[in-house]
Simulated scan of single mutants.
Amino acid sequence: MSTPMDVRGDWDLTQSNGFTVHMQIDGEDPDGTFNGRGNIDGKAGFIDLADTRATDHEITFQMGAGRYTGQFDFQGRLTGTTVDTSHPTSQATWQANKLFGSI
């Protein structure tokens, strides 16, 4: 069994549509599920994350109407896409501002 990437801590996602999402990940279980919240730059308050999962090669989570899916490369860089589940044609790519390693 592979070890999930450690996504705990504070980090940012820079989206291609100009928004930055400030992430605060409090804890992560050995199976890769994690808990935390995100704040979209310029908007008030944090939104709890749902349906979270990190593996050794990808991450998925829901934040409000946004569904985020990303991939870790061999150096620990994380990039991905987000889709507005209320308006599926509204999509953006993103990249994290930190390198990740295994738990």
Rank of each mutant, 00 (worst) to 15 (best):
residue 2 S to Q: 12
residue 2 S to W: 05
residue 4 P to Y: 11
residue 5 M to H: 11
residue 5 M to T: 02
residue 5 M to L: 11
residue 6 D to M: 11
residue 7 V to K: 09
residue 7 V to T: 06
residue 10 D to V: 09
residue 11 W to T: 00
residue 11 W to I: 05
residue 12 D to T: 08
residue 18 G to P: 07
residue 18 G to K: 03
residue 18 G to T: 10
residue 18 G to L: 09
residue 19 F to D: 13
residue 19 F to L: 12
residue 21 V to H: 02
residue 23 M to H: 04
residue 23 M to G: 00
residue 25 I to P: 04
residue 26 D to G: 04
residue 27 G to I: 03
residue 27 G to K: 12
residue 28 E to L: 12
residue 29 D to E: 15
residue 32 G to D: 09
residue 33 T to C: 01
residue 33 T to N: 14
residue 34 F to Q: 00
residue 34 F to K: 06
residue 36 G to Q: 04
residue 36 G to D: 02
residue 38 G to S: 08
residue 41 D to H: 05
residue 41 D to W: 05
residue 42 G to M: 08
residue 43 K to Y: 15
residue 45 G to C: 06
residue 45 G to S: 06
residue 45 G to P: 05
residue 45 G to L: 09
residue 48 D to H: 05
residue 48 D to P: 12
residue 49 L to S: 00
residue 49 L to C: 00
residue 55 T to H: 11
residue 56 D to E: 14
residue 57 H to Y: 10
residue 57 H to L: 02
residue 58 E to S: 12
residue 60 T to R: 14
residue 63 M to I: 03
residue 63 M to C: 02
residue 63 M to V: 06
residue 63 M to E: 12
residue 65 A to M: 12
residue 65 A to L: 09
residue 67 R to W: 10
residue 69 T to F: 12
residue 70 G to K: 02
residue 72 F to P: 02
residue 72 F to R: 03
residue 72 F to D: 02
residue 77 R to S: 13
residue 78 L to R: 09
residue 82 T to V: 15
residue 82 T to H: 03
residue 83 V to W: 05
residue 84 D to H: 04
residue 84 D to R: 00
residue 84 D to S: 11
residue 86 S to M: 13
residue 88 P to H: 06
residue 89 T to G: 07
residue 89 T to A: 12
residue 92 A to Y: 03
residue 92 A to K: 02
residue 93 T to Q: 15
residue 94 W to D: 09
residue 95 Q to S: 15
residue 95 Q to K: 14
